[in-house]
Write a protein that binds this DNA or RNA. Sequence first.
DNA 1: AGAAGTCAAGAACAGTGTTCTCGTTTATGC
DNA 2: GCATAAACGAGAACACTGTTCTTGACTTCT
Lengths: 235, 235
Amino acid sequence: MAATVRERRRQETTDAILRSARTHLEQAGVEGVTLRAVARDLDLAVSALYRYVDSRDDLLTELLVEAFTEHADAVDAAVDEVGPDDLPGAITAGLRAYRAWSLAHPAQFGLAFGAPVPGYHAPAERTVAVAVRPGSRIMGLFATAYERGLVDADVLAARAATLDDGTAAGFDALAARQSYPLPAPAIALAVDAFVRVHGFTVMEVFGQLRPLVSPADAYYEQLLREVVTTLGLPR
Amino acid sequence: MAATVRERRRQETTDAILRSARTHLEQAGVEGVTLRAVARDLDLAVSALYRYVDSRDDLLTELLVEAFTEHADAVDAAVDEVGPDDLPGAITAGLRAYRAWSLAHPAQFGLAFGAPVPGYHAPAERTVAVAVRPGSRIMGLFATAYERGLVDADVLAARAATLDDGTAAGFDALAARQSYPLPAPAIALAVDAFVRVHGFTVMEVFGQLRPLVSPADAYYEQLLREVVTTLGLPR
DNA sequence: AGAAGTCAAGAACAGTGTTCTCGTTTATGC
DNA sequence: GCATAAACGAGAACACTGTTCTTGACTTCT
């Protein structure tokens, strides 16, 4: 186990590289994370970094996964704090954290959800699983709410009425794939809600909301209340 | 007027530069638009480009303004085709074109609405006016619909009930600034709608929707119908 | 202790944006 | 029409970037 004065040092510099890259990402955006800047921080030659990182793209992927993970962790923490007894409250808290983290970490958010970084294509096998976490968590809460009979039947029926067959089939496939115990109209409601929340967050973080909505906090809180309502949940 | 064998040639190469840059943007993303690639296309030395362009950032700004303009033009064309007699139809057509153009021009859309390009900060004085055009156009249609009494009073009252004072004040300020003849609750409805449309479009173009919604066309059409309904408009 | 694996450094290559200088070409003023 | 001024194009150079390769030193294992 202590096969590792070396392994430990290796882990340390690997961590230091990631920390340095993250700092540059936060302070100067994606283009600020350059191998030479990281090398300067660690007092290393640029070529030495390649012992720890395959390429700059690899480093970006690491930052991307870290961003997705922290984002999802923030949502999870907020959900857990409310607990499973108050599902509408938990959903609200999770979606509130969804936006809050994004505003607090705009560079990471941009890397994760912005326009695909030029030249760099994130490897799906590393990102998809973690990118989907927040949505899955919220969907899970909504699923148990549905199982507990909390979702208003009228709301569900109304959504079913506006749902065309093709879209419904797609939602059924999604439910089967992720094994959500939800009918297509319920999935539709959840997707509707998520699009509104993510859309608002994207617009705010990228600065496209400022000309429209001035006190964004209050507007978002109202959006959350309306989302709960349109999900057919009480309160 | 013909003070210009020179001026005409100058205009021609300026156009050629922009066309070349645009091609590279579409084919290789932002990072693909490089001065040296443009110079190769035009059989010019890189340094010669600086006679026509202040910097690479300046070139990107040009592309950005072009993207905003074409996007807005597409929306305008769709709206004009329907005409002012069918306002819900015009709004639907405009928002349909909003998404269609974005899907057809993902690179331009990413440049315009994606995460701020690293290192490059678009000069607001050149972009804001044109970036706001589609939203203003839709808002204008909604305003005349409101003046014609097409907006359902109950829908308006319901939105007024959920509107807090701070947000309402912000919307009133927006209406005054842009001289929209709309009360705060009506502006709220329009902003709600725009957030949904833009949010959906962003998610789809950036690939964050594929895991959720499989036949996106049908879903979007349904979204448009619901948007018209939640705007309090008939049909 | 010797062999094998690991690490760091340096130089080099192909890119990038940008600036400067140097001739050449064009348009303008007399 | 000619000289002057402005505009233009090309080339070299500088400071960056990511990446690769070679060389030498160090640590670990047998």
